[in-house]
C-alpha cells in the first residue's frame, strides 16, 4: 500500500481533555467506546462518521482525542455528554485543541496540575464522624471514600471542609 502524499491526507485536529475524577485509571479503548457512543447519540451516524473520533493516548490524567478538522466543536460538545466509562462515573473537561499532539503535550506541561495535596492517598481521616480514606488529593481538592464498604461512592471535598469538621 502506498502512503498518500501529505497534500492528499485528511486534516486532523487533536483535543486535549482532562479525565475526572483525578487519579482514576481509564482504559483508552473503553474511553473510545464512551466517546464514540456520545458522538453518535448526540449528532447521529452521519456527523459521527465525519467527526471520526479516536482516543490516541491517556497521559497524566488527560486524554488525547483525534477528530477531523472542522469538527472540533462537535467533538467537544459530545465530550461534555460523556458521563461514564466502563461503568464508572467520569467527566471530560476539554482543555485545548491543536493540530499536533506535540503542541498539546506542551500545553499540558503549561497547565500542569496544581501542587500535590497535603494528604497522600490511603490516609485515613474522620469526616463528620465517619471514617474515610483519601484516594486522591491535589492542591485544595480531596476525594475520599468511606472505609469498610466495597465499591463505596466517592465524595468530593476540599481541605477547608476537613478543617471545619
Amino acid at each position: 500500500m502506498t502512503v498518500r502524499p501529505p497534500t492528499l491526507r485528511e486534516k486532523r485536529r487533536y483535543v486535549l481533555a482532562r479525565v475526572l475524577p483525578g487519579g482514576m485509571t481509564v482504559d483508552p479503548k473503553e474511553l473510545y467506546f464512551a466517546v464514540a457512543e456520545a458522538v453518535t447519540s448526540l449528532w447521529g451516524d452521519d456527523l459521527a462518521s465525519r467527526v471520526h473520533p479516536a482516543v490516541l493516548a491517556i497521559e497524566n490524567g488527560c486524554a488525547f482525542i483525534r477528530c477531523r478538522r472542522g469538527t472540533e466543536r462537535e467533538l467537544a460538545l459530545a465530550l461534555s455528554t460523556v458521563t461514564s466509562c466502563a461503568g464508572q462515573k467520569i467527566a471530560l473537561r476539554t482543555i485545548a485543541t491543536s493540530g499536533t499532539m506535540e503542541s498539546l503535550r506542551a500545553r499540558l506541561q503549561e497547565t500542569a496540575r496544581g501542587a500535590p495535596g497535603a494528604l497522600p492517598a490511603g490516609t485515613g481521616i474522620s469526616v463528620g464522624g465517619k471514617d474515610v480514606e483519601v484516594i486522591f488529593c491535589e492542591s485544595q481538592k480531596i476525594d475520599v471514600v468511606e472505609k469498610g464498604f466495597k465499591n463505596a461512592a466517592r465524595f468530593f471535598l476540599t481541605t477547608q471542609d476537613l478543617e471545619d469538621k
Binding site: L20, L77, S80, T94, F156
Partner: peptide, 18 residues
C-alpha cells in the same frame, strides 16, 4: 449533584446553541 455533573460555561453555551 456532583462536580462530575458540572459543565463549563463554554460547554453550556454550546449545548444551548444545539
Amino acid at each position: 449533584d456532583s462536580v462530575l455533573s458540572m459543565r463549563s460555561v463554554r460547554e453550556v453555551s454550546g449545548l444551548a446553541a444545539t
